[in-house]
Design a protein around this nucleic acid. Structure first.
Lengths: 130, 130
DNA sequence: TGTTGCCTTGACGCCGACGTCAATCTTTAC
DNA sequence: GTAAAGATTGACGTCGGCGTCAAGGCAACA
């Protein structure tokens, strides 16, 4: 199949697929006219990339999964490198959650302090009367 | 005081201060030689900007605080617009926390599934023996 | 008087994951 | 036959918040 069909079936765009190829994530055979030619294995590969992106991985972090699939495994996360990426990413997300919680707490504290200084926050029906 | 001193005292760089000015957050009188000239009020303004950045606000979101300070209020968050920014930002952070939690849950689920498929995760002493 | 250091403006670089435009084929449909 | 749709490569744009470099003007100290 050609790049447009692969993009449609995978739920992305030709531009994204060319970009993945430029990053070494996707390879392509070429037809006689120079058009890229893909098969079902490529579709599975692209689907894996997109699913991982959806779970928060960067493109670069999907690389081990892609190589795992290419080396013949049924799932992209059947290899130790992929598992490591999962674990590292979970740790990163945890750190990010901590930072964001601290940010939230700081904002709430500032808001509370500001409202306390202002003894006049009793604005009922502020914007949309009637 | 000149830009270098203001930057040092506020804990930032001259480049950042010029950038704030280009964004309309900071104004500057000029000395006879063309150098920017700042006073203590400017230091307080820059400190407010930096503190808000540290609590997760974008530069653009600090604008109401700056204008509040400029209009003579003692604190940057003594104005209704600033309070609104607090509230909006808290909502944004909450949404981000929800997304991140979902991402985390997805990663944990994928990791668990992968480990379950692999009946062989019993790697004791994997990298650093002895 | 020379050197060092701070100041000025202007312009490009960065990062991630593509979007968008341009100019030029190839294929397909009517 | 021709026009639309889809393919190719290449290059620039996006977003935020500056970093970094360049070329030159002021200031202070030996």
């Amino acid at each position: 199949m050609r790049i447009g069909e692969l993009a449609r079936r995978a739920g992305t765009t030709p531009r994204a697929l060319r970009f993945y190829e430029s990053q070494g994530l996707l390879t392509s055979r070429r037809a006689a006219n120079g058009y890229r030619d893909y098969d079902e294995a490529d579709l599975r590969l692209v689907s894996e990339i997109l699913a991982l992106q959806a779970t928060g991985l960067s493109l670069d972090e999907t690389r081990p999964f892609v190589e795992c699939l290419r080396s013949g495994h049924e799932a992209g996360d059947s290899c130790a490198d992929s598992i490591e990426v999962y674990e590292r990413k979970i740790a990163e997300v945890d750190a990010c959650l901590d930072r964001l919680s601290a940010v939230r707490a700081g904002l709430v504290a500032k808001l509370a302090a500001a409202l306390e200084r202002q003894p006049d926050p009793c604005r009922v029906m502020p914007a949309h009367p009637q």
